[in-house]
Design a protein around this nucleic acid. Structure first.
Length: 320
DNA sequence: CAAACGTGGGC
DNA sequence: TGCCCAAGTTT
């Protein structure tokens, strides 16, 4: 099945450029596993590459397979997530590892539909794994790709609000028919958006498709769409309070493993393990010291428990 | 569909 | 300084 490509020069130009200009990134190393790709894609959801790389290395050294992660507690995943942000992703990634073991024999699935059924895997991540880890031919659409298409093809400074149907259709128009080329093109156009056709200061002089760019051809018209929602202030927000509480839970040392006692010594009264968790507990008083506004703090804490990021223990709260 | 969801770095 | 941005997903 061959597709008519309205912009036949774009894909070859980008593929050639990518072959020479791709950054050396862990997930582009030969032999990188599908599991590694899945972990990296979770981490890259809204977190910059430079912050992801050290955590990714740690994760894959500790949990080289889905089964390895599934065998540890979700709290271990949340703690190892450190300060990547959006820690529910760590929870989802753990749940995804469990699901892969239970439903897919411990092997990351290659079908988009199976990937989409995993917690925390959406339209982008599912196609990224199918395309990059398995070489399947799928259009991948992320924020970089949407911006490049908006400029080069639609002639607009910024993309219209996301629409998965439209965005996939637009990317499909550009995608080469052949699998290997399609995979390379997905990576290439994403890389262009990340390093050349950037949101703030595009470097058109370094762009391999500037001669085909409709935005440039139209004289770089300014953005005229609807005003985009302004990101809410972090300082003083519920997010900040959740972050503070979770940082305290991550910092609590694991409940001490029972160690050998001198002969004749009576074991100390065991701190009755509460309903949960071998992760160390933080008392309500310690949490209260983190934030003065009772109502906001309680709301944040309840939210963490409700999200499964915190567990109630006999003495307070702990990672799950 | 808009809003919630972390954190840090660049300009 | 303060705003913008960063390989999204879920509800």
């Amino acid at each position: 099945m061959s597709t008519a490509h309205p912009h036949p020069a774009i894909a070859p130009a980008l593929i050639g450029w990518f072959a020479e200009n791709a950054r050396d990134l862990p997930w582009r190393r030969p032999g990188f596993t599908a599991w590694g790709t899945l972990v990296s894609e979770f981490m890259l959801q809204q977190t910059p590459v430079s912050r992801v790389i050290p955590r990714l290395d740690e994760w894959l050294a500790r949990w080289p397979t889905p089964a390895a992660l599934a065998a540890d507690s979700p709290g271990d995943a949340v703690r190892a997530w450190q300060s990547l942000g959006y820690p529910r992703r760590a929870l989802w990634l753990h749940a995804t590892a469990v699901a892969i073991v239970e439903r897919h024999g411990g092997v990351v699935p290659r079908e988009v539909d199976a990937l989409l059924a995993l917690p925390g895997v959406g339209d982008y991540t599912a196609r990224a794994v199918a395309a990059f880890a398995y070489g399947e031919r799928h259009p991948v659409v992320d924020t970089n790709i949407r911006r490049v298409i908006a400029r080069a093809v639609a002639g607009q400074a910024e993309p219209a609000p996301p629409s998965i149907r439209r965005d996939l259709a637009a990317m499909s128009q550009l995608l080469p028919d052949e699998k290997v080329a399609a995979r390379s093109f997905n990576a290439a156009i994403m890389e262009l958006g990340a390093t050349v056709c950037t949101a703030r200061a595009p470097r058109c002089e370094a762009c391999p498709i500037s001669e085909y760019c409709e935005w440039r051809g139209a004289g770089f018209p300014g953005y005229d769409g609807p005003r985009k929602a302004v990101q809410k202030k972090y300082e003083g927000s519920d997010r900040q309070v959740r972050g503070l509480i979770l940082a305290a839970l991550r910092a609590a040392p694991d409940a001490a493993a029972p160690h050998a006692l001198a002969p004749g010594t009576r074991p100390p009264e065991p701190p009755r393990p509460g309903p949960t968790s071998r992760h160390g507990s933080v008392t309500a008083a310690d949490i209260a010291a983190l934030w003065p506004d009772d109502e906001q703090r309680d709301r944040a804490l309840a939210g963490l428990v409700s999200d499964g990021l915190a567990a109630v223990t006999a003495t307070g709260y702990a990672l799950p």
